[in-house]
């Protein structure tokens, strides 16, 4: 096997697994209550008592980061699911039927892509009241185009393939062809896209929340933590560093994972 492939895959898996562990732990254990304020202990530097210090209300930063991971994963996962489901339907419809429907759908997708992602997300969340579900919806819509394109190109590539023709010649119907013949060969590009979409979703969520338009209190979010921390960047740099670092590691982890899956496919073929 290709060395680089296994390396980025392993590193990606390691990062993601670490974050997953943090997120899962937070479901039943955090060092402190993430929302418990303690004005006496505000803006403390990292110590044995508070590993990542405290924020301007004296809340434990580590606990908030941990709970924030739940938000990140929830947003990443659900928006990827939205993107995948709609992207798959659109991509399959376009690629499989071809002709004017393909033209129409792909024009729509191009239009969606022409907007800078964050702008579109801003537009979507500003139409409605900012909230977690709005954020997920907006990011999900944003990730439809990349799924649709990947699926469409996979379907286009395969629909004229000999094995699809052969299956057709033996009586297979459209659904059989799509789900049993074509889809199994697209798992890897779909996973690659999903990992990328996951990392993009976390970045956009952070950006939206940083702008105060994403996840709203009391749901904790790394983006909003950054926002809150920026006024104290001199006095308490760890407070900015912690969410920033976690956002970075998450994005990096999922990007590496995505690369790793892609390389894995390349070496196998």
């Amino acid at each position: 096997m290709n060395k680089k492939a296994s390396f980025s895959l392993l590193l990606g898996i390691a990062f993601v697994a670490l974050l997953l562990a943090v997120m899962l732990t937070s479901l039943f254990y955090t060092p402190y209550d993430a929302n418990e304020m303690n004005i006496a202990e505000r803006l403390q530097a990292p110590s044995a008592k508070h590993w990542l210090g405290t924020d301007n209300f004296g809340r434990d930063v580590l606990s908030r980061i941990m709970v924030g991971a739940q938000t990140a994963f929830l947003v990443g996962l659900l928006s990827a699911v939205i993107g995948l489901v709609f992207g798959f339907i659109i991509g399959t419809a376009a690629g499989y039927t071809g002709k004017w429907l393909d033209e129409l759908l792909m024009r729509g997708i191009d239009g969606l892509l022409a907007f800078p992602g964050i702008l579109l997300a801003l537009l979507l969340v500003s139409i409605f009241k900012p909230s977690m579900s709005q954020t997920i919806l907006a990011i999900g819509v944003l990730s439809i185009p990349s799924f649709a394109r990947v699926v469409r190109s996979g379907v286009l590539q395969q629909k004229e393939a000999e094995y699809v023709k052969a299956a057709k010649g033996l009586g297979a119907g459209h659904l059989h062809l799509i789900f049993k013949q074509i889809l199994p060969n697209m798992i890897s590009p779909i996973l690659t896209t999903a990992a990328l979409s996951f990392s993009a979703a976390i970045l956009i969520e952070a950006a939206l929340s940083y702008l105060g338009l994403g996840v709203q209190p009391p749901d904790p979010s790394w983006g909003r933590m950054l926002n809150e921390a920026q006024s104290f960047i001199r006095k308490a740099p760890w407070f900015t560093l912690a969410p920033g670092l976690f956002i970075m590691v998450t994005v990096l982890g999922f990007n590496l994972l995505s690369d790793g899956i892609r390389d894995l496919r390349d070496t196998r073929q």
């Binding site: 393939a161 052969a166 057709k168 010649g169 033996l170 009586g171 199994p184």
Partner: peptide
């Protein structure tokens, strides 16, 4: 016509390398 494919009339193609699906 799909009902006749495979059950009444079946086809074997030229290239056995590409007429089976490598993903399955």
């Amino acid at each position: 016509i799909r009902r006749y494919r495979g059950s009444e009339i079946a086809m074997v193609f030229q290239d056995p390398m590409s007429s089976l699906n490598n993903g399955l």
